[in-house]
Amino acid sequence: MKITDSAFKKPKDLPGLHILSAGTSICAGCGGLQAIHEILDILGPKTVTVNAAGCMSLLSVYPFTPFSGSWLYTAMASAPAGAQGVRDALDRLLATKKIAADEDMQVVVLSGDGSATGIGLSATSGAIDRRLDFIYICYDNEGYGNTGQQSSGGTPHGARTTTSRGEQGYCGHKKDLFSIWKANHPAYLATVSGAEPLDLARKIEKARAIKGPSLIIAFSPCPTGWHFPPQESIEIGRLAVRTGVWPLKEYEDGKVVHTKIPAGRLPVTEYLQKQGRFAHLFHPGNAYLIKEMQADVDAYWDCVEKSAATGR
């Protein structure tokens, strides 16, 4: 699909109203929730959202729900398996003519990065192998947010979390969930950010149209866990893209395309200095860590530019 085929050419093409209603117990300024709002607006109400334990499990609290579609909370490890059951049952109901084609629904998994990169990987991997027709939405707040921001498989190198309080922060490296999926030839993959709604809308539009397993990884600035004031959430989202820390890309037909290549990338410090979780990086003696991060980002984009030049 080319941009010219998209229903979302200009910002004013975006839906004006959110279908996920307000009044939930999610933290003010939650970047994950913002992305979810924007995603659901494109997906519409005919959805079954299958949720893994995490912050968003508190969206639906008895007897209220902000969703206009259906909701199934499963467990931390098995949301994609829940999606398999729902999809298989819908297919069976369609095949036996118990429901009409227009009663079919989009099956969506909603989980955090902890579930997506760790405990839920077996269920996820199985769903990809089986070519399950679903959209996996991973809101990436780079830690186990619901339990108080401990380090997860999604935590970036050097970030402070509640289990990495040392002077150098988290010593592991962020797991490359995009590549894990890509290696198994999904139908569609994309990274998005709530701060880039047009890019997000086009990608969700594609994921919805394509049959098979799709993953959307949504950058999710988390005021509570990353330590910044809630009103800066969108700014941090923008900086993540402009510094090149959060590449916006998609995978389709065996190819990765960067949908927004930041021209004149800002230094990563612009992004880091806004967040308490990186404050220690500016202490004397930690300059090398910032240098390393900048070098990683530069190397990533060098590689992107090279492959764009050679067409590979």
Binding site: V48, S78, A81, D88, L93, S122
Partner: peptide, 22 residues
């Protein structure tokens, strides 16, 4: 219809998801 899952944890989750779908 039948689906071979990746574990019993997944198998039971799929079982519940399907039953809840009708």
């Amino acid at each position: 219809s039948m689906t071979t899952m990746d574990s019993e944890h997944s198998m039971l989750t799929a079982a519940g998801g399907a039953a809840a779908t009708g």
